[in-house]
Structure formats: C-alpha cells, structure tokens
C-alpha cells in the first residue's frame, strides 16, 4: 500500500490521481464525463419499475421474466448495447415469501435497472445484518411483515444480480401500465419496502 497521499484532503487526492491517469494516457476527460452522463441519464429505478409493471399486466411476460431476466430486460430495450454483463434474476414476492437482496461482501447491485445504489445498501450495517436479522432490518425500514410470511434473503456473491418483483397492490386491476410503474419504488425493487 504505497504511493498514496493520504495526508492530503480526499478531493485533492482524487484530483491528483485523475491528472496522473490522464497524463499516462489511461483515460480522457471526455471518457470520464461520459461515464457519469450515462449514469445520470440511463440508470434509474424507472427501468426496473417498467419491468415490474409489465409483469403485473402481462402474465406471460411475468413467466418469461422469472425464467430469464436478461431476455425480459431486453424485450423492453433495457439491456444496454453490450448486454447487462451479469445474469439478471427476478424474484417475486408472494403472500408466503418476501424477498430481500443484499451483497455482504461489497455492494453488487443492478445499477442500470434500479438506479445508483442508495447509501444504506452499501453500509456496513445493512450488509452485516440483512442475512442474520432480516425481520429487524425490515422493521427499521418501517416494514412489518405478517408472522407467517417467510423471508428469503439473496446474497449477491457471484455474477447474478437480483430484482425483486413486489406483489401487485390490491385495487389496481384497471390501472394502466404507466400508472402501475409509478407505484414501484427503488426500495420495493430491493425488498426493503412493499408497494
């Protein structure tokens, strides 16, 4: 662990690193700006919400989503030009089972479909406790599940990224798909909320 400049304020360290990387020809300003532009423009929980709303509205899409998440994302134009780069697995909430997603080892998460990950998802507190005391963690989010609902926790430790399909709220039978999508939140797609 040499070559660091930890005595400097962190913003100055980043500026220096960026200057050295650009001087070494490893990146350009334009490339760095482009990464952020694409993140801000394209990565949003609206994308995951569209998939959920389509699944609620179309049973055959729901089945395809559960069978092959990547293909189902592609159907809605949500695989980027190079594919997602991971295996997308959708897990559906039912009255019997509630799904909760975590990455205990780092912070694995499908950014383009769920939007930039919230700070709490990356926190040591969430990463450590979600696998051990999920009901208590959900209670901190204000979610009290019925005692009979089993919790399935998914630890994204390899190349699969998870998307939770919340249960469709009652009384939305006539609702158009766009309005259904507007009900779906980022927390709902991770499993720390219901819809």
């Amino acid at each position: 662990m040499t070559g660091t400049h930890s005595e400097l304020p962190v913003a100055a360290r980043v500026r220096q690193l960026e200057e050295r990387v650009i001087a070494a020809g490893l990146a350009t300003d334009a490339e760095l700006d482009d990464v952020l532009a694409r993140l801000y423009d394209g990565a949003s929980p609206v994308n995951g919400a569209r998939m959920v709303a389509r699944a609620w509205a179309d049973e055959s899409y729901f089945r395809r989503l559960l069978a092959d998440g990547n293909a189902a994302a592609g159907e809605l134009g949500l695989g980027d030009p190079y594919g997602l780069g991971y295996r997308l697995k959708a897990v559906a909430n039912t009255p019997q089972q509630h799904n909760l997603v975590v990455c205990t080892l780092c912070s694995c998460y499908p950014v383009s479909l769920l939007g930039p990950s919230p700070s709490w998802y990356k926190s040591l507190a969430y990463r450590s406790r979600a696998v051990r005391k999920p009901r208590a963690v959900l209670a901190e989010f204000g979610l009290e599940l019925p005692a009979g609902t089993e919790i399935a926790v998914w630890d994204a430790s390899a190349e699969t990224r998870y998307l939770v399909v919340p249960a469709r709220p009652a009384g939305t039978g006539e609702m158009p798909e766009d309005d259904l999508a507007a009900l779906v939140t980022q927390r709902g797609l991770i499993g720390t909320a219901v819809v």
């Binding site: 051990r132 919790i151 399935a152």
Partner: peptide, 25 residues
C-alpha cells in the same frame, strides 16, 4: 459452474426461520 445455494438461517446462526441464498462457484 456457479450455483445458487440455499441455507436455512438455523443452520448458519442457530436460530431464525428465514433462508439465505448465496451464489457459489
């Protein structure tokens, strides 16, 4: 090959009714 492997909470922590699925090479 990578497998999704499901563990009962009681197997890992000695308590709990949830399951934890971990993706393992």
């Amino acid at each position: 090959a990578v497998y999704a492997v499901r563990f009962p909470a009681a197997e890992l922590w000695g308590e709990g009714t949830h399951t934890i699925t971990v993706d393992l090479w």
